[in-house]
């Protein structure tokens, strides 16, 4: 561990995640367009939008504080950190002992709280509306997410992602019914946490129904670009986390360079599949009312608890 090739590989992996993140979103949007009989703007559209936003001049409200200007950078930094922790291509990288899954949830919470505070900074009605809704969804999602991790850690006796992935990928033949429940719960949490349908609608133009978008209404240009990009990374990280937990086949060991091409291919294949699946799911469902979100996330929680119970019943 902590040798130079490993560190280099770690850097390559996180850069890859960060740069590929807009592509995943573009792919989801493209799939959705196809499913809805539209032509779509192509999977590269998010890059064009980011480029456009970075070119623009920042327009800042008169009484915005330093916190408002810091928040996009901090969010971007913490998402980068999250992307570095999840084993996307290989396990046991130098950054992986820095945090386990619970700390990963902490990173997400950190960036979310900063954004929520920034949203309240300008003092518009929509900003605080978005902030409180985002915090609402997150506090409902976190217990369910923890239950999912509880499932995974029961099998692998660890919350360290490297260990979880290694345990689960070596037990491919051993079917864990509890993980099926956990996977369903995780999917629901993923949708809620990333502001996707049915909890939030990322494409909405109606301010009153917004959750995540309402927080970023006052942001413009490079700040907005960083926030958008962070959201892409967040979606990417969640998806790769799901892959690492529930479909860890093909992820290489650290230092095993020969496995890397295969790992990249497997990752691209799985991401493509996951993106298409998400698009299908979003096409088939409609946005829920805000106060149905507790039921939605409560279902996720119960599914994860059912997973735990099946695990305990199996061993007893």
């Amino acid at each position: 561990m902590n040798t130079w090739p490993d560190t280099l590989f770690q850097l390559i992996q996180s850069v890859l995640v960060v740069t590929l993140a807009p592509l995943l979103l573009g792919w989801i949007n493209q799939c959705r367009a196809w499913l809805q009989n539209r032509r779509g703007a192509g999977p590269l559209q998010p890059y064009r939008e980011l480029h456009k936003l970075f070119h623009k001049e920042v327009v800042l409200a008169h009484h915005a504080s330093a916190l408002f200007r810091m928040a996009p950078y901090i969010r971007f930094g913490s998402m980068w950190l999250a992307a570095a922790i999840v084993p996307v291509l290989a396990t046991d990288l130098p950054f992986s002992p820095a945090a386990d899954v619970i700390a990963l949830v902490g990173v997400f919470a950190f960036s979310r709280v900063f954004l929520a505070l920034a949203a309240m900074d300008v003092g518009t009605a929509f900003g605080s509306l978005g902030a409180r809704r985002e915090m609402l969804v997150s506090f409902l999602a976190e217990p369910a997410l923890l239950m999912v991790f509880f499932n995974a850690s029961l099998i692998s006796h660890s919350t360290q992602l490297t260990t979880i992935v290694e345990t689960l990928s070596h037990h491919t033949l051993m079917l864990h019914p509890s993980m099926a429940f956990a996977a369903a719960a995780f999917l629901m949490v993923l949708l809620a946490e990333n502001a996707r349908i049915p909890v939030d609608n990322p494409a909405t133009h109606l301010e009153l129904t917004m959750i995540h978008e309402a927080m970023t209404l006052e942001y413009s240009a490079r700040h907005l670009a960083l926030i958008e990009w962070s959201s892409h990374i967040k979606l990417m990280t969640y998806t790769t986390l799901g892959i690492a937990l529930f479909a860890p086949w093909g992820i290489a060991q650290a230092g095993d360079w020969r496995a890397v091409p295969l790992a990249v291919a497997a990752l691209l294949f799985k991401l493509g599949l996951a993106g298409a699946g998400l698009a299908l799911l979003e096409t088939l469902s409609a946005k829920l009312r805000l106060f149905r979100a507790p039921e939605f996330l409560g279902t996720a929680f119960l599914l994860a608890v059912l997973g735990l119970l099946t695990y305990f019943l199996r061993i007893s």
Partner: peptide, 29 residues
């Protein structure tokens, strides 16, 4: 990690694009 990424992004954005900024009233839709 967070601090270094924040610093890197800050300078990279300014180098590759610009750091222009204008004050105005809040947009508020």
């Amino acid at each position: 990690v967070i601090a270094s990424v924040v610093a890197l992004t800050f300078f990279a954005v300014r180098r590759m694009y610009h750091g222009r900024l204008r004050y105005s009233d809040p947009w508020d839709c």
